[in-house]
Amino acid sequence: MTTADSEPFPPAGVDLSQPSVARIYDYFLGGDTNWEIDRQFAEQLLGKFPILRPIARSNRLFLHRLVRHLTKLGIRQFVDLGSGVPTMGHAHEVADQVAPGEVRVAYVDHEPVAVAHSRSLLRQYGDEDRHTAIHGDLRDPGRLWERIAETGVIDLDRPVALLMIAVLHIQQLPSPDSPESADLGPRLVATYRDLLAPGSYLGISHVTSEGIPDEFAGMLENIKTMYDGAGNPVIWRTRQQIRELFGDFRMIEPGLTWTPLWHPEEATVTDETPDLGEASEAIVLAGAAKKE
C-alpha cells in the first residue's frame, strides 16, 4: 500500500473518510498497512514534529521488553488490547523468543485493518491453538472478556498479562447513543483489573504532558488539536493519573518511568536505539504491575 494507485480495496468496515490512529501509528513505525488519508495526516505531523517517529518506535520497543520480562517471570498468556497493526513484531513473536511454543496470545482491536492483518499474520506464522485476533471494543469489558474466553486460546481463570500499550491516551468516549460524555478510561481499566485472575499483570504506556522538556508542551497542544480535529480525540494524563490506572496492583521495578528506561537490559542486539536526546523526550510513561 505504498501508492494510492496500488492500494487494494479496504476490508469491510474500514472508514476511509478520516485517518485511523492504528494506521497512523503503523506509518510512524515504517509499516505499509495504511491508506493515503493516514499517510497525509502522519506526514503533516512528522513535518512539524519529526521526533514522533522515534517516540513511536521507543514505545513499540517497550512492548517488546515488557513481553520478554513478563515471560521470564512465568507469564504464559497475554491479552493485547488495542494491539494495532502487526508492525515491528507482535507479542507472540517476542514471547516465543523466550519460551518457544509455550505462550498464548489474544490480540484485540477495534480497527478492522489491524484485525485483518493480525489474522493474516497468524495464519501464516502463528498457531491457531495458541494465537487469536478479535475484532472487539474495549469499552465493553464484560462482553469482550466473554469473547476472549470463547476462543479457547486464553484461560481467564489463570494469570494473564493484560497489555494496554498506547491505547488509553486515545479518549475512550461512550457510544453515540450513551447519555454519558466523559472519558471512560479509568473506569474501564478498573473493570479490567477486577476481571483479571490473581497473579496477573497489567502493562500500560501512556502519553503525558507532565515532566517533558519545556519545548515539547506546544507540540503536544498542536498534536491534540490535530487528532481531535480528525475525529480521534486524545487525552494526556499526569504521572499521578497514569499511576492510578494500576489501582492497588503492586508496581514492579522500576515503577512508572519513560519508555526507554523500562528494563533496558531486556533489549536484544537487533533492537534499534531511537534517536532521543534524553529519556523524557519519549513523552510516554510506561510500567507494569501485578495483581496479588
Rank of each mutant, 00 (worst) to 15 (best):
20 S>C: 06
13 G>I: 06
260 P>R: 00
32 D>Y: 10
157 D>V: 07
110 H>P: 00
223 I>D: 02
147 R>S: 15
177 D>N: 13
259 T>H: 01
195 L>G: 05
143 R>I: 10
154 I>H: 09
69 H>F: 09
178 S>V: 02
9 F>P: 12
150 E>L: 11
202 L>F: 03
107 Y>I: 01
197 A>P: 08
205 S>N: 01
107 Y>W: 00
263 H>K: 15
132 T>A: 13
91 A>M: 08
51 I>C: 04
58 S>A: 15
1 M>Q: 12
220 L>H: 10
134 I>H: 08
227 Y>G: 09
89 G>Y: 07
110 H>K: 07
210 E>N: 03
98 V>M: 06
55 I>M: 10
203 G>D: 11
117 H>K: 11
1 M>E: 11
253 E>N: 14
205 S>I: 00
38 D>L: 12
117 H>I: 02
209 S>D: 13
33 T>I: 11
237 R>V: 04
105 V>C: 08
161 A>S: 09
2 T>F: 07
4 A>C: 08
137 D>F: 14
199 G>W: 06
104 R>C: 10
131 H>W: 04
23 R>A: 04
194 D>P: 02
228 D>G: 09
29 L>N: 03
197 A>M: 01
255 G>M: 05
278 E>P: 00
229 G>D: 02
48 K>C: 09
203 G>E: 01
97 Q>H: 11
176 P>V: 12
162 L>C: 11
234 V>G: 03
43 E>L: 14
165 I>A: 07
89 G>C: 10
160 V>M: 11
88 M>K: 10
225 T>S: 14
289 A>M: 11
105 V>I: 11
6 S>E: 15
91 A>R: 05
20 S>K: 04
65 R>V: 00
219 M>W: 01
155 D>N: 12
56 A>Y: 00
191 T>P: 01
157 D>S: 14
285 L>R: 11
253 E>D: 15
206 H>W: 00
65 R>H: 05
153 V>L: 07
232 N>K: 12
250 R>I: 08
122 L>D: 05
251 M>Y: 01
182 A>N: 10
166 A>S: 11
96 D>Y: 10
143 R>F: 08
291 K>W: 01
240 Q>Y: 06
61 L>N: 06
128 E>G: 06
275 D>R: 00
224 K>A: 15
156 L>I: 08
3 T>D: 13
273 T>A: 09
288 A>I: 04
213 P>F: 01
182 A>F: 07
39 R>P: 14
35 W>A: 12
283 I>R: 00
96 D>L: 02
156 L>P: 11
113 V>K: 03
142 G>V: 10
181 S>R: 14
152 G>T: 08
292 E>A: 09
135 H>P: 01
290 K>L: 15
87 T>V: 13
119 R>Q: 15
107 Y>P: 04
142 G>E: 14
59 N>P: 10
35 W>H: 15
96 D>G: 13
232 N>M: 12
122 L>G: 07
20 S>R: 10
179 P>I: 04
252 I>N: 08
32 D>Q: 13
147 R>M: 12
223 I>N: 03
287 G>C: 06
106 A>E: 04
